[in-house]
Nucleic acid binder design. Structure first.
Lengths: 342, 342
DNA sequence: ATTTAGCACTCAAACCTTGCGAGTGCTAAC
DNA sequence: GTTAGCACTCGCAAGGTTTGAGTGCTAAAT
């Protein structure tokens, strides 16, 4: 059986309707609302067809139809009308970003907050710092008799600090001197370049070999695990959605994901680059997404460089139209801000 | 009517029992479990007395008794037996703190995690940086043509960064020079001292008045709003407790509190100093605590200086005995670590 | 070949009714 | 002051009934 245009149309109606009523959709309601010129019996046979194709399910034999995961996928990629933000919503977004904060983190916090408010969903974002960023400043200074603090600042004002043990036989002057040398060597370079330097350079630093290695280790550690910031807002929004209302287990599961930075990171970092809006629907393909959840994400970038991703996580039955338009709307403003700050 | 010893004993049994059964407690079960030498009828009349005194409630006329808020308060302050951690629990705590992290934040993250796991409750902590901390390092450097980055490091390795507009007519050398002067002036002083300096010093800086004031403003801002870190773990743990299982509204309310740094801060900062373990029971006296919630907190300090508070938030019906012993157990280890790090 | 009206069938949800049992309060005796 | 005994209350679970929305099928109409 093929997906005729009429079937597609009807499928769209079913999903539309189900998204905002949360009730199985009946043949009658479709004819009444959308197709007054054909009869419910006709729609009924079309629905039976769509069910056979795997796009619809029946909770029980005398109920209306409910979209399957397949249906959602098709809906989002092909069927769905493109939404538009109301001027009220647009103003809300603009208002939220009015006092331009100067650090990325505040901007991202604003972003997730706005998205969560407008979509009534949990909103998440990660900022990933590219290893192509240059180091602006690197500084080592004595903090306690045996410990020094290493401070690294990068272009996107990522700031990192870490304690380093001062080698036993090192004097204060030597520490200062080593700090100067390391600074001279590292400032202006990217993390990538530094890691490659390592082997070639150690000669030169023979006197400060020990401290140099500790700095390298610290910098490498930033890369391995500490390279992202995660921001979440509206964790509890899931409870505004009926399918989660009486299912403690589901909520627990959902919360355990959105309150874990690691899990969120994992989810958002699968993001392929360059794709504007990306939709993942939980259950089958994505094991790490909570059950019956879907995630819509976008990336933000400045000057062509991807800085991170943001998006929403919520029930399968979410208002994709609205979500997509909100993400796009926020995205535009975000890029403006980021490019301006560059 | 007075609270006879027997009434107290019975009240304790009721609360004990209710805490781990979540069911109204009957006269019969009390005699059977705890007082086999008197009859249920006797207990019944005592229960009636306790009800009249406001310590017990009856969900309906033919049900057992349930503790009132007053009863919980009395229970916690007077009635409750002192709990002891099992060696298993103690080991769990020690294990969690084994690899001593060197920064406060990691330690606090560990703390809330351990507490949340052991108590099965949401655990929160705030670290407040005292304004008596000395500044270890202050640095201003050019970041973009019109912007400089201000970096402040304090004793407890609080690190703060903020963008500052560079005054229009300022050269790079002047900026460096101003940075040096400000560093000379500020390093080794506490925030408090600096704020007081302000008026007296500006003369000297006439050339750099503008940048100096911007630095001052930035530092003051840290104090007004940015002075605490909040850490939370086990946000979803509330769902493990039956009273919240089928009440979406309650859960929503609860989550909106524990996911808001501001709200948590407010709650934990009401903490009076010097009090070891502190119990707040929601509903009547504390409006800002979610409904039917109570909060048990402790403070942690190093060298006699209070660094912050930590504790749990959960349903009224929580295992206070265990919570208190966990908080105390963690507290001891925490103080060891902090003092050692000093 | 589609479309439609008509009708029998299905099934969840809402609503009653009923019986059970846990727990109480009261009273009268100890 | 304590206890046994008993009548009473009330939530809860189980079972039964009704209702109505929605379907699938069939036979006639286009």
């Amino acid at each position: 059986m093929k997906l005729s245009d009429r079937k597609k149309k009807i499928l769209q109606y079913v999903v539309d309707d189900y998204i905002n009523s949360a009730q199985p959709v009946s043949s009658k309601s479709i004819t009444e609302k959308y197709m007054p010129d054909i009869s419910s019996a006709t729609v009924r046979s079309e629905l039976a067809g769509l069910e056979e194709l795997g796009y619809l399910n029946q909770p029980h034999s005398s109920a209306g139809r409910v979209p399957s995961i397949e249906a959602y996928k098709l809906y989002v990629t092909e069927l769905m009308d493109k939404g538009k933000l109301t001027s009220k919503e647009l103003n809300f977004i603009k208002e939220a970003f009015r006092d331009r904060a100067d650090n990325l983190e505040t901007v991202v916090q604003n972003t997730v907050k706005v998205i969560s408010e407008l979509t009534d969903l949990t909103s998440v974002a990660v900022t990933s710092h590219s290893d192509k960023e240059k180091i602006l400043k690197i500084d080592i200074f004595k903090y306690k008799p045996t410990k020094a603090l290493l401070l690294v600042v990068t272009e996107s004002t990522l700031i990192r600090d870490k304690f380093i043990d001062i080698p036993e036989n090192m004097s204060d002057e030597q520490l200062l001197d080593a700090g100067r040398m390391i600074s001279n060597l590292f400032v202006g370079k990217t993390f990538n370049e530094i890691v490659n330097l390592e082997s070639a350079i150690t000669e030169e630093f023979s006197a400060y070999k020990e401290i140099f290695e500790r700095v390298m280790t610290a910098i490498e550690e930033y890369f391995e695990k500490d390279n992202v910031k995660v921001v979440v807002d509206g964790e509890g929004k899931i409870l505004n959605h009926t399918e989660y209302n009486n299912d403690g287990e589901k909520v627990k599961n959902f919360l355990s994901v959105v309150t874990s930075k690691d899990r969120i990171c994992e989810l958002l970092n699968q993001e392929e680059q360059g794709i504007e809006i990306n939709i993942k629907i939980g259950g089958d393909d994505k094991k790490d997404l909570p059950e019956d959840c879907s995630m819509v994400t976008a990336t933000y970038s400045a000057g062509g460089v991807r800085l991170g991703s943001y998006g929403v996580i919520g029930p399968l039955r979410m208002d994709y139209q609205k979500v997509v338009s909100v993400l796009e709307g926020v995205g535009k403003i975000l890029e403006d801000i980021l490019n301006e700050n560059k």
